[in-house]
Amino acid sequence: MKDTTNENHLDFVGDDLAINFINTRRMVEGQLTDTLQSDSDVKAWLRRLEVPVAKGSLPFGDGVLLKGARGLREIALAAVQDRKSGKKPSLGALNRFLADAPSHAVLTTDTANNIRMTRVYGKQTVEAFLTPVAEAVADVLADGDFNLVRHCEGNACVLWFYDRTKGHRRRWCTSAGCGNRAKVAAFRARARQT
């Protein structure tokens, strides 16, 4: 089994839950790789990004959550691509996820007695289980600044990000990854010219 520990940092490069979800499909060693391979992977990814989901076993068969998550990811990717290119995105499939969104608020306190409100979502259907992600997609589509939603300029990179940098000049998914490869390639190109 391949160790993906070093690749897990890519779960956060999008700087937005919806964009991070789209980025669960990425290039690894030149191969398009899906980091979501099982229902457990989906649940673990949601927990790592602190997405509020109901706990316990799933009330649907094995692989159903994975299929739903991959479907939602394709819906999100298509909508973001359409929105970024100025096209009207198709919203019907995303609205179906949002329509099945039973949730309630829960208040908790931490050790300093700070009160925090979080939403707890139902899990009777795949759509309800994935509602926090669908809501994040809806939020970025409705309120996101698509001048700042960008595709990495790295050669063959499939990752997206929401540029929250101060100067809004971010070009790469990561400076250490695609940014470094681009700098090395530019350096080698200049060296060949001399």
Rank of each mutant, 00 (worst) to 15 (best):
T109E: 07
L77I: 10
R171A: 06
D82G: 06
V120E: 12
D163N: 01
L77C: 11
L72R: 09
L107C: 11
T108G: 12
G144N: 02
Q124S: 04
D145A: 05
N155A: 07
F161N: 01
D100M: 06
F97T: 02
M117F: 10
W160E: 00
V140P: 03
V133S: 00
S90N: 04
A138H: 09
E74I: 13
R70K: 13
N155R: 11
A136Q: 11
L148A: 09
C152Y: 02
L66T: 03
G92I: 05
D145M: 04
A99I: 05
V158I: 12
V140Q: 06
G92D: 11
G86Y: 12
S85N: 13
V106S: 11
D110V: 12
R116N: 11
G179L: 07
A112R: 11
V80Y: 08
K67I: 10
D163A: 00
R119G: 13
D143M: 07
V158K: 14
C157W: 00
Y121K: 08
L91A: 03
R73I: 14
T125W: 04
R164Q: 11
R73S: 11
F146H: 02
T165Y: 04
N113E: 06
C152G: 02
T131Y: 03
Q124I: 00
L148R: 12
K84R: 15
H104T: 14
A136H: 11
A134G: 12
A79V: 07
K84Y: 12
A156D: 14
S103Y: 15
L94C: 00
L77H: 14
G92H: 07
A136N: 09
V80S: 07
W160C: 01
L66N: 01
T108Q: 14
